[in-house]
Every structure is written in structure tokens, then in C-alpha cells.
Design a protein around this nucleic acid. Structure first.
Lengths: 194, 194, 194, 194
DNA sequence: TATGAATGAGGCTTCATTCAT
DNA sequence: AATGAATGAAGCCTCATTCAT
């Protein structure tokens, strides 16, 4: 309350809208490094040229930035995945296009892993539900064999996320796409020879 | 854990080892409920008949108990997984026994993964390396087809963790074991019919 | 205070003096409601169509508006009290006119004392000094009996402020004036019968 | 969270119960100087040899210390005033004993004025209600003349508090007692000659 | 001048850890 | 050893004030 003076100000280079991006970028980085729980708002601010108060002009709390990040990601991937699935007429195409789109996204998004995102944001959950619905539709059309759609979705997601780590670590998008697709098409026996 | 009032006169004081166990048990419970960051040492102590200072006679820090807990988990699973793989003479047995052991462990342990397992504890990383080594050995023996062993390990882990979630949510261990095994043996086409 | 939407085109921009008044009016309201410490500059500005920076074109600080407000009050009462005393030829008139003027002011002003008047503003202190001087003069003229003028001033002020609370709470100005005057004229025995 | 080391500790001279008193004493001082609103918990702590966290071992907030202080005062004065009134058989005795007890209390309590206490603590309000009840009883017994008891209480309180300021500033307890008693007994005419 | 985002001191509070007993 | 009060760094956030536009 009532701070006495206020020393000469400093930086004021960034535009308003840019600051939001600055904060999001810093948050992306820090969350990736420390995880959600260990990250403090201060950590985020420190990774920024901004003052602590500025954070609160854009986000009410750590939760809110995190939310924003997750939704940003989900918002960015979902249309791509949707588009990838759209034209798929065969199981192989369905799989390959999904995996490729996801791995490409990951490869583009920069290595500092957006942290194995917790799967509970509304946007993310919606994304999964969407995938599962598409899988069910594909099963109904006969494009995919009938099976436990929930488990299959989970398996796809699990493989996608784990292999994405390898992509981030430098693996080729096409190699991982081929690997994952082959696995789901024909099991281990069908995998590309090492 | 222990009753608050002083135990009946004839009873021996808690031994040191018992106190350590008391703290670990409380920590297991509290960390599972709140996650690492949200848990305070006071929360752990409160779940105990001990005083706050006593905590530090047994653990150097909050990190240390958490560490101990994670390693305890890894320590508990690894032998089971190792045993599961040991006798496997066929690929199918190798997979099924691994998955079954893991899902059973998860089903028994209640909530083994408070915040979706951090994969960075030394013990956990060692567990992965061990799995990958076993896979490579199996490939060499011809039990598993030759392929990118790292990617295969990743895929196995991804599927195992995602389906484990379904087990926690009530799915049958055998059903998930069959599902995962079939997936890796023959791909989607081989999955049990829905 | 002023409507948020831009005023009709034909209307002249608010003049500087009007802005000052706008701010003072808003401050009067907000300080009265929340007290000094609980009031934020933003609260004051929010009660205004102006922007936060504009505040500082008119006042150097939050203190300054508050000061201005207190002095405004003192400035408003003092002439009325002075006038009230001016013509008093008898002790009774002196007292009654002072009390009446003060109680009337309080009754009109709504909540003149947000947090029970801090007695330390220069204007307020000057007001007291002036009252005491007048009392001393009146004693010298024989209008008031010779006594400890400082203590008498204090007693008058104490009674005036406490009864003012009752006026704010709905008591009649005349009743309180009569009560206070009678008390100082003849003590408890002279008070109006209940 | 998780401060890394913790530099060598320091002071640890005071006993537990003493610390509460230490804080209350500091609070008494600081509130008197700055008033309730302007005082921060930090101000109180700084007026103490204790660490910031220690404050919260004793009080949950600024409000709580303030409460404690007010109640402490009210608790200390009320019995004395009650005792003062108890034996009063005449109006003059009733007044003189009340005023004397109050002024003595103020004189003893040390100069750093416990700030013109806001009259809204439960204890303080109860004290007023008690006084008013005694006044009403005295009126009923004929010890005090029948009049507006609420207004009379207010007037007594106003005079008591204002003259208490003079006592704090060095005036004699007996002189102020005589002044106030005379005022209420016979009005200005009855006041001791200057 | 008016605007409103940026700034950062400083308020409040928690909690890992120490240490006198 | 066990205890639990004390410690103080550090988290969170507000808000008076400045300054580029």
C-alpha cells in the first residue's frame, strides 16, 4: 500500500498484445521444465522481461495461464487432426494421417516439450471425445475393425504421446508415423525392420 | 496411523523403524491425495502422532520422502515385471505377463500415480532401461521380431499407462491385458471383438 | 457521476474545474463508504468517467484528495459556526447557535465523519483553536463564566460529536440542540424531562 | 515454498506466553500512532524483535490483534467503572467516581494513547449498554434526574473521552474529574473558576 | 490533457526447516 | 530421540503512481 516514490521506470518496448504472448511463451517454457505443480507465478514472471504486476493484467492466476496454454494447444491441434481424419477411406490412412499430423505439430512446436499435458482441460477432453467418436464412426462404417473403442482411443493416445517424445528428441516424423501405423495395422510383426 | 492418546503402559515405545514406516504411510496417503506440490510437511505430520521436528530425524526434506515413496513403488513393480518376463518363451507370453503384472499392481495399489507418474526418478528410469534391455535381448533371441527397440519400449509404456487409467477406472485386468497383448501381437484386426 | 457513454456531440468537454469536482464528488462518496485506508484510487476513478492517469492531473496522491475533502468539510462548517456565534449576546444563544449549526450541517451532509473524524487536519485544528479563542473572548466579555477554556472547548466538542452520532442515527436537530444547550447551561438537572 | 537453506537462527530469548504480550504491546503502540486503518501487520512485526511468521502463531490477522487489544482495554476498564458506580448514592458521587476511575485508568495506561477507540467492539458496546442501564436505573431510583438516557450517556462518553485527552496531555486527574462532575451537576456556571 | 498499461514496492501469509528444551 | 515454537525466505497479489501514446 502506498509505496513512497517509484524509481525511474524502464522497459516499455512491447505492445500490449505482445505481452500476452510473451507471458504465454514464458509459461510454456517454465511449465515444460518444472511441471505445473512446481511452477510458481514468480517463475513465469522471471522468465519474462515484465514486472510482476503485469502478469496480473493478463491472467488472474497460475491456473489461468495454464488453462490458456492447454486450450491454445488443443485449439491448434484439433483442427489439424480433424482435417487429417476427414478424407481417410482406409484404416491405414486414418491412422497414418492422424499420427503424421500430431507428430508434425509436435515437431513444429519447438522442442521445449509443452509438458506431457494433463488430460483434463475441457478442450483436451473434447479432443479425445472427438477422436473416440470418429473411431466409433469408422468402426461402424467398417473402416476400422469393431473393438473396444475407448481402449483403442487410449492406446492410440498413449502411443502417440510416447512416440512424440522421441520426435521431440530428434526422431523423424515419417519414421515414427510408419512405426505407429504399422503397429496398429499388424502388430509387432508388421513393424519396419530395425 | 497410531492413536493420539498415549498407548497402554505395557506397550513398548515405537521403535525408530516403526516411526519411519509411520511417516511413509502417512506420506503415501497424503501425496496420493494432494500431489507433491500441494502437500505440506505439516499435512504429512498431521496424519501422524508425531511432532514436526521428528520428521527431520527420518528424512532430510520433503523431497526425500517423496523420492523414497517413488522408489518404493518402482522397487515394488520392477521385480514383479522382471519375474513376469523371466519365463516368457514366446512373444505373446512376454507381452501378456508384462501387462498383467503391471495392471495387477495398479489395481492393487489404489492410486499409484497421483500426478501422472513423473518419469524421471532414477528408479523409474532404470526400470525403463531394464525393459528395453530385455526387449533387445528378446529380439536377439528371436522371441520378439527385430524392430526399433526404443520405439517399441515407448509404445509399450504408452499403452500400458493409458490402459492402466482404465483399470483404475474399473476395467478388468484380464480384459485390458488381452486387449494390449492382442494389439501388439496382431494390430487392430486382432483385437477382441467389441 | 457522469454517464459512461460519450456525451452528445453538441456538449462541451468537461472543463478542468469540472473534472476536479467530479473526482472530489466521487472521492467523497467512496471515502465515506469505505474509509481512507480501504479506499483505493481505482475505487475513486471507477466512480468517475475518467481514466486513472487523469486523477494525477488533479491531485498528487490519494492523501491529497482526502486532505482536500477534510478541509472542504472544515471549510464548510467553520463559517457557519462562526456566523452562529457572531451575534450571540448570551451564553445560551452562543451554545444553542453553535450546536444547532453543527447538527444541521451533520444532518445535511449525510455522513460527514467516515471514520470518526481524525482531529489532526490543519483546517480542523484551526477550527478548534478558533472556537477556543471565541470562548475565551466570551469569557472575557462576561458572556460565558470564567473557567478552564481548554477543558470547556473539549467538553463542547465531545458532546457535539457524540450527539452528532445520534443526529445521524435519526435524532431531531432541535432536540439535540436543546439537550446540549441545557446541559451546558444548567447541568443534568436542567435537561428536558424525558 | 521450499526455501533452500535457512541461515543461522538468532534470538530465542522470550518465552511463548511473553511473545503474545510482546506483540500486543507493539500493536498497542503502533495502532496508537498510526490508527487502525493505516497500520499493517508488518508495522506491528517491525516493532517487535520477532520474525514475521511468529505473528501468525498468535493472531490470524490485524483484525484479531486489534480485537484482542480492544477487549483487553474494555475488560480492564469495565470492572473499575462498575465498581466506581456501585456505591454511588448521589448523582454527584455517581459522576465523580465514574470520571475519576476512567481518568485514572487513562493516566495509568501510559501516554501512547490507545487511539480513540472505535466504539464498535462487542466489549465496548457492552460497556456502553451497561453504563446506560446504570444511568436508567439511577434515574428510576431518583439518583439522577429523568432525561433522555441515551443522549446523556453519549454526552458523558463524549466529555470523558475528550477530557481524557487532556489527562494524557498532562492534566490532573482530580482537576478533570472536578470539571466534568461540576459540568454535569450544574452546567457551565458551576464550573470551577479558572 | 486524457488515457490506461506497466511498474514494482510492499502487504499478507504459508511453510520447510532449525533449535532450545 | 521427540517436541513444537520460532524463523524467514518466498509465494501470492494489490495498488499507488508513472509514462508512452
Amino acid at each position: 500500500m502506498e509505496p513512497k516514490p517509484t524509481p525511474p521506470a524502464g522497459r516499455r518496448e512491447l505492445t500490449k498484445a505482445q505481452n500476452r504472448e510473451t507471458i504465454l511463451a514464458a509459461a510454456r517454457q517454465v511449465f515444460a521444465q518444472l511441471g505445473f505443480a512446481a511452477t510458481t507465478v514468480r517463475d513465469v514472471i522471471r522468465a519474462t522481461p515484465l514486472a510482476s504486476g503485469t502478469f496480473y493484467n493478463y491472467f488472474k492466476s497460475k491456473e489461468e495461464v495454464y488453462q490458456a496454454l492447454r486450450d491454445e494447444v488443443a485449439l491448434a491441434v484439433r483442427p489439424r487432426l480433424r482435417a487429417a481424419r476427414a478424407g481417410a477411406e482406409t484404416a491405414e490412412a486414418f491412422l497414418a494421417q492422424n499420427f503424421r499430423a500430431f507428430f508434425q505439430f509436435v515437431a513444429e512446436s519447438g522442442s521445449p516439450a509443452p509438458e506431457r499435458f494433463r488430460m483434463d482441460s475441457p478442450q483436451v477432453l473434447a479432443g479425445f471425445a472427438e477422436l473416440q467418436a470418429d473411431i466409433e464412426a469408422a468402426m461402424a462404417r467398417g473402416v476400422l475393425p469393431a473393438a473396444d473403442a475407448g481402449a483403442l482411443t487410449a492406446a492410440l493416445v498413449g502411443v502417440a504421446f510416447e512416440l512424440a517424445e522421441r520426435v521431440k528428441a530428434g526422431a523423424e516424423v515419417e519414421a515414427m508415423t510408419a512405426f505407429a501405423t504399422a503397429l496398429f495395422m499388424g502388430g509387432m510383426a508388421a513393424l519396419p525392420k530395425a
